[in-house]
């Protein structure tokens, strides 16, 4: 049984299709969702995070149907979600914020202390415990968003733009934490940072206008890039990405 299954999923906003008949099977490991603005990345992530429902099609998360209230509750106890956004406008301190999210997740005191300790250490938030969240720099906010998503030991981690506008230190920490996490849970993340995403993902899904334009490993994207003409001297990864988004038929990589 796959961890996450999307079957002919469609979502439309005000007559504008955001996703059109998406079929995906996601298993343990890290899947990076990429694509230009408006391709449907955030919509796909919000569907996986059970924040919205599809107009048609089916979603199964660890075998559970998010349309059924009791199964939805089960999914959410094993879900970590970090939405996009740099401006967490709250007067709570970092420590209060993490305890607040732990309470929202219904963690008991033992689980709460254990998980908060682990995430503060892993994501280097110790120095900011008593700072108000609204005053944190962007990189620290991104780390905090990932830290709160990891509370409660989720099986499915959904992260929207975790590397957007982050500094070098935060990027390094995030990549390290996500690499280690992908061993034992299903991570789905979206973003624009091709190199970062390719470095940690074992699968890349490129969306184009609400449809899947590419779904394979980073190595296959590199191979696709190498197989294209590359007049702009792009890296193979960038060339492969652009080829996936182009309307031209993509050449098959040479069989090894």
């Amino acid at each position: 049984m796959s961890d996450v299954l999307l079957d002919r999923v469609t979502k439309t906003y005000r007559r504008r299709p955001a996703l059109q008949g998406i079929n995906l099977r996601l298993t343990a490991g890290t899947t990076a969702i990429m694509g230009p603005n408006g391709a449907g990345k955030t919509t796909l992530l919000r569907l996986l995070a059970t924040a919205i429902r599809p107009d048609s099609g089916q979603i199964r998360i660890h075998g559970a149907d998010p349309n059924r209230p009791l199964e939805l509750a089960r999914i959410r106890t094993r879900l970590g979600y970090a939405p996009d956004g740099n401006d967490l406008d709250t007067r709570l301190s970092v420590l209060q914020f993490l305890h607040h999210v732990a309470a929202l997740k219904g963690l008991d005191i033992t689980e709460r202390n254990r998980d908060i300790e682990q995430q503060i250490e892993a994501l280097g938030l110790g120095h900011a415990l008593h700072r108000q969240v609204r005053q944190l720099p962007t990189g620290t906010v991104r780390r905090l968003l990932v830290a709160q998503a990891m509370l409660g030991r989720p099986q499915l981690l959904v992260l929207d733009e975790p590397f957007a506008d982050v500094d070098h230190e935060s990027r390094h920490l995030l990549i390290d934490v996500l690499r280690r996490s992908s061993d034992h849970l299903t991570v789905v993340l979206a973003g624009h940072h091709l190199n970062d995403l390719a470095a940690i993902a074992n699968r890349l899904v490129i969306l184009k206008a609400g449809t899947v334009a590419f779904d394979n490993t980073p190595a296959d994207l590199v191979a696709a890039g190498l197989a294209t003409t590359n007049p702009d001297d792009l890296s193979p990864l960038e060339a492969g990405y652009l080829a996936a988004l182009s309307d031209r038929p993509r050449p098959e990589p040479d069989p090894m």
Binding site: A73, T77, Y81, D89, A103, L104
Partner: peptide, 21 residues
């Protein structure tokens, strides 16, 4: 329920968030 606020979105999908919160 500030639209687009990340904390609102986090609370909306938490087991004890949403309507109960």
């Amino acid at each position: 329920g500030i639209p687009g606020d990340p904390l609102t979105q986090i609370a909306a999908v938490a087991p004890h968030g949403g309507f109960r919160l």
